[in-house]
Design a protein around this nucleic acid. Structure first.
Lengths: 208, 208
DNA sequence: CCCTGTGAACCCCTTCACAGCT
DNA sequence: AGCTGTGAAGGGGTTCACAGGG
């Protein structure tokens, strides 16, 4: 019951939420939880929680429920966040600099390593301890960091070429803030962050 | 075929993407498109596009496809972004200031009006032309702007009380950047932005 | 022809409900 | 008695495929 690719996408998204709540429980010294309680804290149904976990195995115990520390570690392993991963960040505008200063990433096992910008003015400057590289240096700099993921916080110009170069360098996942459809090279996963779209959704929903 | 509440959530999310592409087409002077072409540009199947639109009515024409300008306007009306909406922004940290400077919101019909912070040091300062109010002033300041939506870019402390106060003031939708589950008052819609969760999803997916 | 709009089939995910166990 | 894990049922969204029309 484990590593087929038959894991619902939404289950993966919920794993993050489970892990976060489990971390809180662990901090408060709670050693075990029943599905009912954990589901309540996360905001899902107990059946959903048990189903999600059952996709990966049997972690529960009828008498005590789930062991908090063990389950936390297990989900971390599933997500691949049990060890620190280094990300590349492209674009040192307002957004890029904000992301660089955001502490939440480090807390969850993500470390921003090399940062890049196309703008000559930014290249060579230091942001939060990182020297900014020119985009042209991608091929020479990136291999030293062995990044499997990158954050795109740059302008829309030449995006397709950029993603192709990143893919060539072994980057298999992109967190994309550029409001434009990315034609991802095969094998590269893209998650879009489109705040305007979220506002539009809220605008629609709150009209009735 | 119109205003029942039976609109799939994911259809709503795709409306944003249709609208963005239609805006681009309009800028380049194209007057009409067939579902096949529009769907290609957006990155969905033609059947999906037609199904999505058919939920709201019949906008197409067998001979010419869809009229770009009309459809653009229609989707804008559906989303409620055909007129500018004013948002409140809570939290003037790095994130809040970045959001304030982001041009993308204005382009899509969202205007950030009043900004608030709990921190006494920030209150009274001016950010991008807006004077920052204290959180205590919420009840006196917010009614002047008649905001139906708010952006939460503050710390996690006292979130439940804050959302309750916002709800009382008529705020029916929240774009939430705080990594914590919000127990939304009834009738209030919440969209969470959790970048770490997106990275964890990417981490999971790119491991095979 | 080749388009749109749409019933119907399909598929994926959620929920129910219970067997098995402690 | 009350829990987990899971077949089976149910529901929601996508895709198929075609009727209808220029």
């Amino acid at each position: 019951m484990s590593d087929t690719t038959k894991v619902p996408l939404q289950t993966v998204e919920r794993l993050s939420r489970y892990r976060r709540v489990l971390a809180d429980l662990q901090d408060t010294g709670i050693e075990s939880v029943f599905s009912h309680r954990l589901a309540d804290l996360v905001g899902v149904t107990p059946a959903q929680l048990r189903r999600d976990l059952s996709i990966f195995g049997s972690f529960g115990n009828v008498a005590r429920g789930y062991d908090v520390a063990t389950l936390h570690r297990t989900i971390g392993r599933l997500l691949g966040t049990d060890q620190v991963q280094t990300l590349a960040l492209i674009g040192m505008g307002n957004l890029g600099r904000t992301l660089l200063m955001y502490r939440g990433f480090e807390e969850r096992g993500f470390h921003i390593g090399p940062v890049f910008d196309r703008d000559r003015e930014k290249v060579g400057k230091v942001f939060a301890g990182r020297r900014c590289y020119a985009l042209e240096e991608l091929e020479t700099v990136l291999p030293d960091f062995s990044c499997r993921m990158a954050i795109l916080a740059c302008g829309p110009g030449g995006l397709d070429a950029l993603t192709a170069r990143l893919a060539n360098l072994g980057v298999a996942a992109l967190l994309n803030f550029v409001p434009q459809r990315i034609s991802a090279p095969p094998g590269v996963f893209v998650e879009d962050v489109d705040l305007s779209a979220k506002l539009e959704k809220l605008s629609f929903l709150s009209r009735r």
